[in-house]
C-alpha cells in the first residue's frame, strides 16, 4: 500500500516517458485488445473458409438467392429514402426547438433500438395487419400490407430509422448558430440557410447516420418475419433466406451470409474513407 502511494506521487515527474516505455505500453495494449479482436475476426473468417469461392458463385446464380439479394437491396434503399425524407424534419425539430414532450419524442425514437425486433413485428402486425388498428381501415379500402414488400419496408423503417434521426439530430445541434444567423442577415431565407450552411456542415454526419440506418435495415430479421412473413421474391430478404437456408441448404445460407458480410464491410469501409476525407477537407 505504501509502495503505491510513493509511486502515485512519482508519476507526474515522469510524465515524459522514454520512447521504449511508450512502445512497451503500446505492445501491451495491443496484446490486451487481441482477445476481442480475435473474437470478432475468427467466426467471420470461419464463414469465408467454410465454402469455396466456386460454390459461392454457383449459389449466386440460384434463383432464390438472387431474388433475396435483389429484394434486400431494393427494400433497404426505399427504407433509406423514406427515413431521410421523414426523419430529417424530426431530427431538426429535436435539435433546434425546445418544446413540451421533446424528451418523450427523443425517448420514443430510442425505443426501436432497444426493443427486440420481434416486439416491433408484433406491434406492426396489430397496427397494420388486416385486423389491426389502422389495417382494418386500409383493408376496407382494399389495401393489404401484411405479406407484401411494403410490409418489409415498414418493418425495416421502424427498426432502422432511429439510427439516422439520432445522428442527424446530434449533427444539427453542433452547427454554429452564428454562421446561420450571419447568412440570414445577408438575406438568405430559412431554406437557403439550411441548404447552404446547415446541410454542408452536417453532411458527413448525416451520411454516416444514413449508412447506419441502411446497414441495420439490411440485417433486419425479427420484425420482417413476423409482420411481412417469408415468401421468396416477395418478402424473403437475405437475412430470412439465410435463416431458412440454415435449415434447408447450408451452403445457400453460407453464400448469402458471405454476400451480406462483404457488402456490409465494403460499404462501411468506403463510408469511413469518405467521411475522413470530408473531415480533413473541412479542417483544411
Amino acid at each position: 500500500m505504501r509502495d503505491t502511494t510513493v509511486a502515485r506521487v512519482a508519476i507526474p515527474a515522469r510524465l515524459a516517458s522514454p520512447r521504449r516505455v511508450v512502445r512497451a505500453r503500446g505492445a501491451l495494449l495491443a496484446l490486451c485488445s487481441l482477445p476481442m479482436a480475435l473474437f470478432f475476426l475468427v467466426p467471420l473468417a470461419a464463414l469465408l473458409l467454410r465454402v469455396s469461392p466456386a460454390d459461392v458463385l454457383a449459389n449466386l446464380v440460384d434463383r432464390q438467392v438472387a431474388q433475396a439479394i435483389q429484394l434486400s437491396i431494393g427494400t433497404t434503399l426505399i427504407t433509406l429514402a423514406l427515413t431521410v425524407l421523414a426523419g430529417t424534419p424530426v431530427a431538426y425539430l429535436l435539435a433546434r426547438r425546445r418544446f413540451r414532450g421533446r424528451v418523450l419524442l427523443d425517448t420514443l425514437l430510442d425505443l426501436p433500438m432497444v426493443l427486440p425486433p420481434a416486439v416491433a413485428g408484433i406491434a406492426l402486425l396489430i397496427t397494420f395487419g388486416r385486423r389491426g388498428l389502422i389495417g382494418q381501415g386500409l383493408d376496407a379500402a382494399g389495401i393489404q400490407l401484411a405479406f407484401t414488400p411494403a410490409a418489409v419496408i415498414l418493418a425495416q423503417t421502424f427498426v432502422a430509422a432511429p439510427f439516422y434521426v439520432k445522428a442527424a439530430a446530434a449533427a444539427f445541434g453542433t452547427v454554429d448558430r452564428e454562421l446561420e444567423q450571419a447568412a440570414a442577415l445577408d438575406g438568405a431565407g430559412a431554406l437557403g440557410v439550411f441548404r447552404h450552411i446547415t446541410l454542408p456542415l452536417t453532411l458527413p454526419a448525416l451520411f454516416g447516420g444514413a449508412v447506419m440506418t441502411w446497414a441495420r435495415a439490411l440485417g433486419e430479421f425479427g420484425a420482417t418475419i413476423i409482420f411481412a412473413g417469408n415468401f421468396p421474391g416477395r418478402t424473403q430478404t437475405m437475412p430470412l433466406a439465410i435463416y431458412l437456408g440454415f435449415e434447408l441448404d447450408f451452403s445457400v445460407a453460407l453464400t448469402l451470409a458471405i454476400v451480406l458480410l462483404v457488402i456490409s464491410f465494403a460499404v462501411l469501409l468506403v463510408v469511413k474513407g469518405v467521411l475522413r476525407q470530408r473531415i480533413q477537407s473541412t479542417v483544411a
Binding site: F147, A228, N230, F231, R234, T235, Y243, L244
Partner: peptide
Amino acid sequence: DAVLKNVVSSET
C-alpha cells in the same frame, strides 16, 4: 399449382 399460388408466407 392453384393452391401454391395462394401461399403468402412460408413460416419457420
